[in-house]
């Protein structure tokens, strides 16, 4: 686009304002996590004591461990199922409306609706809820996201090379391993990282499908409980760590598969 100085100035101002809006709240939170004083909002000197107190908080550590279990297991299952689903759909070029809706639905259905649906379902089955029910629930939306990332990659995939490979006598396994997989691998890994990030951060569905007690309290549930009981510098420290983890995962995902954030 052509640009005059005035226009360039305007554009720069917009960018500065928007990025300020997006990053100031986070920056304040991160800065206050290093605050010495007990008030979560007033600066009184640098300290790492809130991080130290986190390390000694067994409820938070166990919640972190639970979150890791949920995220790893649900990501593993979702990556496998989501990738197979993507290959199945794209290879057969079956774009039935119902099928599309089924795959798309988990991404748009309001969390609260899926959450209460699963709560009703599990309690009607008389299933004792716990980490396993959170995992079952998280796979639902994770597999949809993995599938859409992998499908995007497969759209440009030339299926004739699969046939060529078969014609040349390669077994199905060899074809998948040597031909299909290398092409989609970056998308699979990116999808997995995306799923992992979503699962680590997911609160509402976990809140409704968790069982009693610490055994199935995830980190976001713990954070919600802490926020409801008031703002403390400990939450700031925890928030900083959680953000650092998700941002690292997303940055990796982005490097592997540019396009996941829309580019």
């Amino acid at each position: 686009m052509t640009s005059s100085p005035a226009r360039a100035f305007g554009m720069r101002t917009i960018l500065i304002l928007v990025f300020a809006f997006l990053y100031i709240p986070i920056a304040v939170l991160v800065a206050l996590s290093f605050n010495k004083g007990g008030l979560p909002t007033a600066w009184s000197g640098f300290s790492l004591k809130w991080y130290a107190s986190l390390a000694g908080n067994s409820a938070i550590l166990s919640a972190a461990l639970n979150t890791l279990i949920v995220a790893l297991v649900s990501t593993a299952i979702a990556t496998l199922l989501g990738t197979l689903l993507a290959i199945g759909v794209e290879m057969r070029r079956q774009y039935g409306k119902g099928l599309e809706a089924l795959i798309f639905a988990p991404m748009i259905i309001p969390d609260i609706v899926l959450a209460i649906a699963l709560l009703s379902f599990f309690s009607m089955l008389n299933l004792t809820m716990g980490l396993h029910t959170i995992i079952l629930a998280h796979v639902v939306f994770n597999l949809a996201f993995v599938c859409s990332v992998v499908r995007a990659r497969l759209k440009s995939f030339d299926w004739s090379i699969v046939e060529a490979s078969a014609d040349l006598g390669a077994s199905a396994i060899t074809t998948f391993r040597r031909v299909t997989l290398p092409v989609i691998l970056p998308a699979v890994v990116a999808g997995a990282l995306l799923a992992f990030t979503l699962s680590v951060d997911e609160f509402i569905i976990a809140f409704f499908t968790a069982g009693a007690g610490r055994a199935s309290t995830t980190l976001p549930m713990q954070i919600y409980a802490m926020i409801r009981f008031g703002i403390t510098p400990e939450i700031n420290a925890l928030a900083t760590i959680v953000m650092a983890v998700s941002i690292t995962a997303l940055t990796l995902s982005q490097r592997l598969n540019p396009g996941i954030t829309g580019q």
Binding site: V73, I77, G130, H132, I135, L136
Partner: peptide, 10 residues
């Protein structure tokens, strides 16, 4: 199986 095995409460 994987989901259930991993989620049996400690």
């Amino acid at each position: 199986g994987l989901a259930l095995a991993l989620s049996v409460p400690a």
